[in-house]
């Protein structure tokens, strides 16, 4: 049996500018925009983010001869950090190509993630009392922050394209009871409001269409809550996370069943002190974009291992 596999792995490349890390102020937010590129297999939030990019040549009896390329490039982009504001923009591009018979892949995608945090904040002690000695001039009780995620993918084999843009705003505070502040009992929450645009393909199982393609925009409201129920006894390994997301359709086509809402509840039990190994349980109930806004109730149990930093 003939089987030849040639794999070229392109390790993550990091060029560290000699001026970084010395504590000196930096003048231009984009001066070093392309000085710290990372090359990986993908930047999709999966385990592929830990894998190096690869170019494969395969010659086998069962699959024939084919090649595949999986390359993701992410650069640091622009960032600015001062005593009053912190913002960053990081772009990434990906290219995935495979000439394997009956499994041709030819996808290109572009993503841009941005975040902005506007301070400074007033400080409060563990008992909730103000810590005015730590406050900067014009410090605020609560500070807004903004998150933007965009992604576009072009599939040249299927002749399709998908796109998504999500912009969210929330707030952070150190005052007990307000968003962001964690209580002694380990509870904190964030409310989000925002806008979202989605251009999605239909969801299929074989030839059966489970959810039609959708193209449109939403106003979005999300409540995120997190609880470490055993924090008071210094046991940090149990985490409960709940989110409720409501989307109000602003315009578009392909959504027939009214405004979608999605509730998720997750429980994570970390099995080691570094929180790299976890057992998880998750409930999803409602309609979310991952399944084309089809009504679903799903329970899953996961075992997760985090490798690398």
């Amino acid at each position: 049996m003939k089987s030849v596999i040639i794999i070229v792995l392109l390790s993550g490349i990091v060029f560290v500018s000699p001026a970084m890390g010395d504590g000196a102020s930096e003048e231009s937010p984009c001066l070093k925009a392309f000085s710290q590129p990372s090359v990986r297999k993908a930047f999709d939030g999966s385990k592929d983010e830990k894998e190096p990019a690869s170019i494969n040549y395969v010659d086998s009896d069962s699959k024939g001869t084919f090649y595949s390329i999986d390359v993701g490039l992410k650069v640091k982009g622009c960032e600015k950090e001062t005593d009053k504001v912190s913002w960053s923009i990081s772009p990434s591009v990906e290219f995935h190509r495979s000439s394997e018979r009956e499994k041709n892949v030819n996808k290109k995608s572009f993503a841009l993630n941005g975040e902005s945090f506007i301070g400074p904040l007033k400080h409060y002690g563990a008992d909730g009392s103000p810590m005015k000695d730590l406050d900067q001039p014009r410090a605020k009780i609560a500070a807004p922050f903004f998150l933007v995620k965009t992604k576009g993918t072009r599939d040249s084999e299927a002749h399709t394209a998908t796109a998504s843009i999500q912009a969210l705003a929330s707030a952070f505070s150190l005052r007990p009871g307000l968003p962001g502040r964690i209580t002694p009992a380990g509870f904190r929450y964030y409310p989000y409001i925002g806008l979202e645009y989605l251009d999605q393909l239909p969801v299929k199982q074989g030839t059966v269409v489970l959810a039609h393609e959708f193209s449109g925009s939403f106003a979005l409201v999300r409540l995120y809550a997190e609880w470490y129920p055993l924090r008071l006894i210094h046991y940090d390994r149990l985490q409960i996370i709940g989110t409720y997301t409501y989307r109000e359709l602003l315009g578009g086509k392909g959504l027939d069943d009214g405004n979608p809402a999605l509730f998720t509840l997750g429980v994570n039990l970390f099995l080691n002190n570094d929180e790299t190994i976890a057992l998880g349980w998750q409930l999803e109930d409602g309609r979310g974009p991952d399944l084309g806004f089809r009504d679903e109730r799903a329970v899953s149990v996961t075992f997760r291992v985090k490798i690398g930093a």
């Binding site: 950090e81 005593d83 009053k84 504001v85 301070g119 952070f172 962001g180 904190r188 940090d236």
Partner: peptide, 18 residues
């Protein structure tokens, strides 16, 4: 239990202090 926003604002406060 410092999350990402907490690290961002902690760094901001420390920059002001420094």
């Amino acid at each position: 239990h410092l999350d990402h926003p907490a690290f961002i604002f902690l760094a901001m406060s420390l920059r002001g202090y420094i």
